[in-house]
Amino acid sequence: MLIELEKLAKFPWSPWLAQIRTPFGRTAVRWCGDQTAVPGEYHVEWTVDQDIVWGKNVKPADDSGPGVRPGGHCVVLRGRLDPTENGAAVLDLHGTLILLDVADQLPDHVAHTWVDLFVEREKISLHPYEL
């Protein structure tokens, strides 16, 4: 996914955080790239290191369409959720696929539905890459 890095910040109690902008929202998220990165456009891969639990940290979205926003101590991603054959799930965030581990089986009716995924800020990260 192509994002705009607005700024990087480091606080004593946290990892490097990137303030980012996407075509469908802004948020701050853990940055796993060069700590001297300058503002600008970067291609990134999203990584979520938190199991999802239906009804707890993943819920039906009130709106359709992709979204990225802060949610207190969380990052909220809105996308289409699809279970995989091996018991995991994939969140389609505007054409970017994010693999998710599932703690409990997802309900049958959630395939390809719009959901809001709430991820603790320390458990979601961006990994920049070169094309």
Rank of each mutant, 00 (worst) to 15 (best):
residue 100 L to T: 07
residue 63 D to N: 12
residue 74 C to D: 15
residue 86 N to W: 03
residue 47 T to Y: 10
residue 100 L to S: 13
residue 101 D to F: 04
residue 100 L to A: 11
residue 46 W to S: 01
residue 41 E to K: 15
residue 17 L to C: 13
residue 87 G to S: 06
residue 124 I to H: 00
residue 20 I to E: 01
residue 6 E to S: 03
residue 123 K to I: 04
residue 76 V to Y: 00
residue 32 C to K: 11
residue 52 I to A: 12
residue 115 V to P: 06
residue 81 L to D: 01
residue 83 P to H: 07
residue 91 L to D: 00
residue 88 A to Y: 11
residue 27 T to M: 02
residue 55 G to C: 10
residue 64 S to V: 14
residue 126 L to Q: 05
residue 63 D to I: 09
residue 45 E to F: 07
residue 24 F to Q: 01
residue 15 P to I: 03
residue 93 L to H: 02
residue 75 V to Y: 06
residue 47 T to C: 09
residue 123 K to T: 08
residue 26 R to C: 06
residue 75 V to E: 10
residue 90 V to L: 00
residue 95 G to I: 01
residue 27 T to D: 09
residue 17 L to D: 12
residue 2 L to A: 09
residue 32 C to F: 10
residue 97 L to H: 10
residue 104 D to Y: 06
residue 97 L to Q: 08
residue 113 T to C: 03
residue 64 S to H: 11
residue 88 A to C: 09
residue 30 R to G: 06
residue 44 V to Y: 01
residue 42 Y to H: 09
residue 60 P to S: 13
residue 67 G to Q: 03
residue 93 L to M: 03
residue 131 L to A: 07
residue 108 D to H: 08
residue 37 A to N: 01
residue 75 V to I: 13
residue 17 L to H: 09
residue 29 V to I: 14
residue 73 H to I: 15
residue 1 M to L: 10
residue 60 P to F: 13
residue 51 D to H: 12
residue 17 L to T: 13
residue 98 I to G: 01
residue 19 Q to V: 12
residue 52 I to Y: 05
residue 112 H to E: 13
residue 130 E to Q: 14
residue 129 Y to C: 05
residue 117 L to N: 04
residue 114 W to R: 08
residue 113 T to K: 14
residue 90 V to E: 02
residue 100 L to H: 04
residue 41 E to C: 07
residue 96 T to M: 08
residue 65 G to M: 11
residue 34 D to H: 15
residue 126 L to E: 05
residue 70 P to R: 11
residue 115 V to S: 11
residue 109 H to T: 08
residue 105 Q to E: 14
residue 89 A to V: 03
residue 74 C to A: 15
residue 14 S to H: 12
residue 91 L to W: 00
residue 3 I to K: 02
residue 119 V to L: 07
residue 31 W to N: 14
residue 32 C to G: 12
residue 104 D to T: 09
residue 87 G to D: 09
residue 102 V to K: 02
residue 86 N to C: 04
residue 10 K to A: 06
residue 29 V to K: 09
residue 60 P to L: 11
residue 93 L to T: 01
residue 59 K to L: 14
residue 10 K to W: 04
residue 107 P to D: 07
residue 110 V to T: 15
residue 104 D to V: 06
residue 44 V to L: 07
residue 46 W to K: 01
residue 105 Q to P: 10
residue 61 A to Q: 02
residue 41 E to W: 04
residue 75 V to A: 10
residue 17 L to E: 14
residue 87 G to Y: 09
residue 19 Q to Y: 11
residue 52 I to T: 05
residue 107 P to A: 10
residue 49 D to I: 01
residue 78 R to M: 01
residue 35 Q to I: 09
residue 115 V to A: 05
residue 74 C to S: 13
residue 11 F to N: 08
residue 75 V to D: 09
residue 35 Q to N: 14
residue 108 D to I: 05
residue 1 M to H: 08
residue 10 K to Y: 06
residue 37 A to L: 12
residue 109 H to A: 08
residue 14 S to P: 02
residue 46 W to Q: 01
residue 121 R to C: 03
residue 65 G to V: 07
residue 110 V to W: 04
residue 16 W to S: 08
residue 85 E to S: 15
residue 29 V to W: 12
residue 70 P to Q: 06
residue 106 L to C: 06
residue 96 T to C: 13
residue 129 Y to S: 05
residue 43 H to Y: 15
residue 122 E to C: 06
residue 5 L to M: 07
residue 41 E to F: 11
residue 25 G to W: 04
residue 33 G to E: 05
residue 84 T to C: 13
residue 9 A to P: 14
